[in-house]
């Protein structure tokens, strides 16, 4: 299980930079990120090397922040790799709420972060479907 940091950001200049500054000043390394936006606001989702610390410092800096459990799946780093994995998730009836790519990789595998309902249960189903799901400790330090 991976601890993802989620933040609420208004769509106005300098907000994203501010988040990155706070994390940088506290020596927190961003490992993956995704930004979803609407006309007025955005939700920034981050995987960092020290999620607890990141949560604390962002909270201190008055951000609306929360921690969400997500999963990191290994995907073959080749054409059709992701498609194959998603097909298997589909067969296992796992609905992906959102997904984004991880910056680092392991050997020939790419990493994809997914958010699903009931990650605790989903993790077993996904593993049973033959997909490798990484533990947090491993991912944070990649």
């Amino acid at each position: 299980m991976i601890k993802q940091i989620s933040l609420f950001l208004e769509n106005k200049e300098g907000r994203l930079a501010r988040v990155c500054h706070v994390l940088g000043d506290n020596k927190i390394n961003i490992r993956a990120l995704s930004l979803a936006d609407t006309t007025d606001f955005g939700v920034l989702r981050l995987i960092v090397n020290e999620p607890e610390k990141a949560y604390e410092v962002l909270k201190e800096n008055k951000f609306a922040v929360s921690v969400t459990d997500v999963l990191a799946m290994e995907v073959s780093d080749s054409p059709g790799g992701l498609a194959g994995t998603l097909e298997r998730l589909d067969e296992a009836e796992i609905n992906v709420e959102y997904m984004y790519a991880f910056l680092g990789t392991t050997a020939e595998q790419a990493l994809v972060i997914i958010c699903v309902e009931n990650p605790q249960e989903a993790i077993h189903v996904i593993r049973k479907a033959g997909i490798k799901v990484l533990e947090g400790d491993k991912v944070y330090s990649l």
Binding site: T38, V65, E97, C115
Partner: peptide
């Protein structure tokens, strides 16, 4: 102002 307690990680939740 959105507080952390009202913050949902999902766009749909916020909408």
């Amino acid at each position: 102002e959105l507080s952390s307690s009202m913050f949902s990680d999902k766009i749909k939740g916020l909408e």
